[in-house]
Design a protein around this nucleic acid. Structure first.
Length: 566
RNA sequence: UGGCUGAUCGUCCAAUGGUAGGACUCAGGACUUUGGAUCCUGCUAUGAAGGUUCGAAUCCUUCUCAGCCAGCCA
């Protein structure tokens, strides 16, 4: 069933990858089939950049009635772990995509890959090389100059077969030999200068255990895996553009199904670090609490922070797909977030910086249950009761003794509305020795129950509140961007510590008072705290004290006006 | 300075030889029981120079700038 309001914003947009597919389908290429794949390496958690690739690959398959596989590119046992495999599956599912029964691993193809390597050796297109890593680098040459052939390049097929078999059998130590494709040491493209196909690694693999001590490289593995799975369009990021001739070479020389590799620009988000290596560093050195720290740009971090999968998908559809090196403003992500959360989040009242209000003419022991709308954007969300009594808390900044111009909130002598409750007028304040306001005295108009004005009079402001004796103490975790710099991922100087850009104020812990209806909430439940922002219950919550992560604040027009006045 | 790829409002994306458009941001305004949401208005762009054409963001030439590539990482 389709919901145009929900679905329309996520409609696929025209982009060059889609154009290629449209054309291929029209020409009947691959029997007009569309089959894509999302191929993460299980060496870290998925981040928002991966979400772009996931939405593209799964989205395209969906749109053209095709399929999208999940495939783990697990050819490097020294960096890969099952923890990452599990988290990746969880995150893709959470984002809203389904690979059905098509979860594959490149390691599933190790036997086939080995056979194909033997085939290339027999065809005189691959050889065992005894050069060390340093020597290979030296022989490879430099830009503008051709490399030199390895002295082992002309070994006989028999010798290559024998050596390769013994490499597999574990006769040689790590790094002693490699299997290389015999292509062209003079190619201007370094990837074609006799690239390594297999290296010796006596390491245990998270899936194949100790079965192998030689492992295929990415270049030798990826295209063949695509081919085996019948992939039609192999969509990857720009840095693999130079690898495409090699991708094509393996497939052509093996004479097997040849998918088309198409490259697009990976996501670059302002004030955000999207390098897996550096994110791992933040986790390992304890700069954040883990991969799912709500400040992390990982999908698990965003989830814990309170982002919805719909919001992330919406963002991904808005940024488009191209080949330009762009930097997306964080504001676009937050805009998509607010737009989605606004229509989906239940409202609740919470006071973050409480100051006491006493309604002097309200009966001492009376408690009234006020009707409050759960979500003005969604009538189906219903209503709830909020208890009202003589002593309340309001936000300290919603009262000013000497209000600036254009300040509409409470001040002595002024009437404002308490949301869903009564109109109140401030009469006086009490202060402590230091001059800080301790109590605000008000009177209420009993005729305005629910916040209505039977006489039609207007008040400029409506503020939120909680009943003091009914309210629940809670902890709020307020986040700001992890990095101060707009582009923290430019590593001009490799020796410079990128953590120097870390925002020391990225986390602020506060406590406040919240409406008792919060009692039914569970971790990951999302709310809008009226007039404050979107918050998500954290798993650190206890029965005593709920903990909330601030997902993102509400647009604050007043803050903008006031800061301009200064 | 070897190769590959790219360059359109401040940002991102579209226009596929025929009126440069949308979104975000920003600036105004309307409305409002969230200074929220919503609605309206406005601002700003084809990297440069030549050429082809009735007509060029689009085709050609030269230049400039940017990203990526010298892992037995992916």
């Amino acid at each position: 069933m389709s919901n145009p309001v929900e679905d329309a914003p996520e409609l696929p947009r025209s982009n060059f990858v889609r154009d290629i597919i449209v054309e291929d389908v029209r020409n009947g290429k691959n029997q007009a089939r569309v089959h894509t794949r999302f191929p993460p390496e299980p060496n870290g958690y998925l981040h928002i950049g991966h979400a772009k690739a996931i939405c593209l690959n799964f989205g395209l398959a969906q749109e053209f009635g095709g399929q999208c596989n999940l495939r783990f590119d697990d050819t490097n046992p020294t960096k890969e772990e099952v923890e990452y495999v599990d988290s990746i599956m969880e995150d893709v599912r959470w984002l809203g995509f389904d690979w059905e029964d098509r979860c594959y691993y490149a390691s599933d193809y190790f036997d086939q890959l080995y056979e194909w390597a033997v085939q290339l050796i027999k065809a005189g297109k691959a050889f065992v090389c005894d050069l060390s890593a340093d020597q290979i680098r030296e022989y490879r040459g430099i830009p503008g100059q051709p490399g030199r052939n390895s002295p082992y390049r002309d070994r006989t097929v028999e010798e290559n077969l024998d050596l390769f078999t013994r490499m597999k059998a574990g006769e040689f130590p790590d790094g002693a030999r490699t299997l290389r494709a015999k292509i062209d040491m003079a190619s201007p493209n370094f990837n074609m200068r006799d690239p390594v196909m297999y290296r010796i690694l006596h390491a245990s693999h998270h899936r194949t255990g100790d079965k192998w001590c030689i492992y295929p490289t990415y270049d030798y593995t990826h295209g063949e895996s695509d081919s085996i799975e019948g992939i039609t369009h192999s969509i990857c990021t720009l840095e693999f553009e130079d690898h495409r001739p090699l991708y094509d070479w393996y497939l052509e020389n093996l004479g097997i199904h040849h998918p088309q590799q198409i490259e697009f620009d990976r996501l670059h988000l302002s004030n955000t670090m999207l390098s897996k290596r550096k994110l791992l560093h933040l986790v390992q050195r304890g700069y954040v609490s883990g991969w799912d720290d709500p400040r992390m740009p990982t999908l698990s971090g965003f989830r814990r922070r309170g982002y919805s999968p719909e919001a992330i998908r919406l963002f991904c559809s808005r940024i488009g797909v191209s080949k330009t090196n762009g930097l997306i403003e964080l504001g676009l992500l937050e805009h998509s977030l607010r737009e989605e959360l606004n229509r989906s989040s239940a409202r609740i009242m919470a006071v973050m910086d409480p100051v006491k209000v006493v309604v002097d003419n309200y009966p001492d022991d009376l408690v009234e249950e006020m009707d409050a709308v759960n979500n003005p954007e969604d009538p189906a969300a219903g209503t709830r009761h909020v208890p009202f009594s003589k002593t309340l808390y309001i936000e300290r900044e919603d009262f000013r003794e000497n209000p600036p111009k254009q300040y509409h909130r409470l001040t002595i002598g002024r009437e404002v509305r308490l949301r869903y409750a009564y109109l109140i007028t401030c009469t006086s304040v009490e202060k402590d020795a230091s001059g800080e306001i301790t109590v605000i005295h008000c009177t209420y108009d009993p005729a305005t129950r629910g916040g209505n004005t039977p006489d039609g009079r207007k008040v400029k402001s409506t503020i939120h509140w909680v009943s003091a004796k009914h309210s629940v103490d809670f902890e709020a975790r307020l986040y700001e961007q992890l990095f101060n710099e707009e582009n923290p991922d430019t590593e001009e100087d490799p020796n410079k510590d990128f953590t120097a850009n870390l925002n020391p104020k990225s986390l602020e812990v506060r406590s406040g008072k919240i409406e008792p209806s919060v009692r039914g909430a569970k971790p990951l439940d999302r709310f809008q705290f009226e007039r404050l922002g979107y918050f998500c219950m954290d798993r650190d919550s206890t029965g005593e004290k709920p903990v909330f992560n601030r997902t993102v604040g509400l647009r604050d027009t007043w803050a903008k006006i006031e800061s301009k006045g200064r």
